[in-house]
Amino acid sequence: MMLQSKPNPPIALDELDRKIINRLQDAFPLVPNPFARVALQIGCTEQDLIDRVTRLRDQGVFTRFGPFLDAAAIGGDFCLCAMSVPTERFDEVAEFVNGHPEVAHNYERAHAFNMWFVLATETEQEIGATANAIEQETGLSVARFPKLEEYFIGFRVAA
């Protein structure tokens, strides 16, 4: 698996793109023609919205578009984990970590704990099993930071 070496440059977005991005971050309508519904709300045609959403997805402005699951609600679990990885082993360890399908995302961060990833699994047991497997593969310890409380307000990022 290739590591993304640096973030993509910002994409030039016009006013309508920004409206679309802001609107689509929550509550996509559950009606037969949801794009027509959203188009009406933001003042464009359905086809224009479909074309732009397709382009925004292809440009990587949207990382995903669809239903977002709550792992806990189906008996699964999320756990934030952190490792202190020696610089010279960083990419090798990232390959091991990313190779586990349970790793939903993984970030390099500027800190002694320099690798932060989230495990998302269907059962709580898989969290421990995956973290243990990563420790075995890498010989490094995996600090586990499960959420104890969530102070949840919203997901919105103003475009």
Binding site: P7, N8, P10, I11, L13, I21, L24, Q25, D26, A27, F28, L30, V53, L56, R57, Q59, G60, V61, F62, T63, R64, F65, G66, P67, F68, F155, V157, A159
Partner: peptide
């Protein structure tokens, strides 16, 4: 929710 997840970097 059913929604789009924006890529912060692209924004």
């Amino acid at each position: 929710r059913i929604a789009a997840a924006p890529n912060h970097y692209a924004l």
